[in-house]
Computed example of a mutant assay.
Amino acid sequence: MFKPIRMPIMLGSIVDRRSTSGYFTFVGGNLVTWRSKKQKVVSRSSAEAEYGGMSHGVCELMWLRKLLKDLGCESKKAMNLHCDNKAAISIAHNPVQHDRTKHVEVDRHFIKEKLDAGIVDFPFVKSEDQLADILTKAVSNRSFHSCLDKLGIRNIYAPT
């Protein structure tokens, strides 16, 4: 029922050093939501920036899960949030505090709670397969069109 949310690598702006996060949400193979947003705070590491984005993604999944339950489509399976940052995935699975988590304490507890409850899972996806990168950074023309194909986005003006 649930398809993965795709989270991108977070890149800081050279002007204000704030990262941009973005994601796509799929239900039953269909793209239903997407978002790209500059984060409100400057992150001290890419893992911290990614983890902040993961927190927003988990919130989106929780909202979507509640909406689908209200519509009579409840699923007991964990929802996948694909992430291309191994450090952020490690922080989600590891309850031990370490230096990278001191600035993300609230997000760390929120995500760990949902992970332990089996509501979400964080499979690793290679950066070159990360669809949401087109929302957060410049990608090559080939990568851009490959992502559009995978998202099912077609040129409505192209001749059939």
Rank of each mutant, 00 (worst) to 15 (best):
M1N: 15
F2D: 07
F2W: 14
I5T: 00
R6D: 11
R6T: 12
R6P: 02
R6Y: 07
I9S: 08
L11V: 15
G12D: 06
I14Q: 03
I14A: 05
D16A: 03
R17D: 04
S19F: 04
S19V: 03
G22T: 10
F24S: 02
F24G: 00
F24I: 04
G28K: 13
N30S: 06
V32W: 02
T33S: 08
T33L: 02
T33D: 07
S36T: 10
K38R: 11
K38M: 08
Q39S: 07
K40M: 13
V41G: 03
V41E: 03
V41N: 10
V42T: 02
S46H: 06
A47N: 06
A49T: 06
Y51M: 08
G53H: 08
M54E: 06
M54D: 11
V58K: 04
C59Q: 14
C59M: 12
E60S: 05
M62C: 13
W63P: 11
R65Q: 10
K66L: 12
L67Q: 05
L68T: 12
K69N: 10
K69R: 12
K69G: 09
L71H: 05
L71R: 11
L71Q: 10
L71F: 10
C73W: 15
E74N: 08
S75Q: 09
K76N: 12
A78Q: 12
N80Q: 02
H82W: 12
H82G: 10
C83Q: 09
D84N: 12
N85R: 01
N85E: 00
N85F: 00
A87P: 01
A88G: 03
H93V: 13
N94G: 11
V96P: 14
Q97R: 13
H98G: 12
H98R: 10
D99E: 15
D99P: 15
R100F: 00
R100I: 03
T101L: 04
T101W: 02
K102F: 02
H103Y: 01
H103V: 06
V104F: 01
E105V: 13
D107F: 01
R108D: 12
F110C: 15
F110Q: 12
E113T: 09
E113W: 02
K114M: 07
L115V: 09
D116F: 11
A117R: 15
G118L: 11
G118Q: 12
I119L: 13
I119W: 14
V120E: 00
D121V: 09
F124A: 06
V125A: 03
K126G: 05
K126V: 08
S127E: 11
S127Q: 12
D129C: 09
D133I: 08
L135N: 00
T136E: 01
K137L: 11
V139Y: 04
V139K: 03
S140F: 13
N141W: 15
N141V: 15
N141I: 14
R142T: 10
R142G: 07
R142Y: 04
S143M: 07
S143V: 10
F144E: 09
F144G: 11
F144N: 13
H145K: 15
S146R: 08
S146V: 08
S146D: 07
C147K: 08
K150V: 13
L151T: 10
G152Y: 09
N155L: 14
N155S: 06
N155K: 13
A158H: 09
A158P: 04
A158C: 01
P159N: 08
T160E: 03
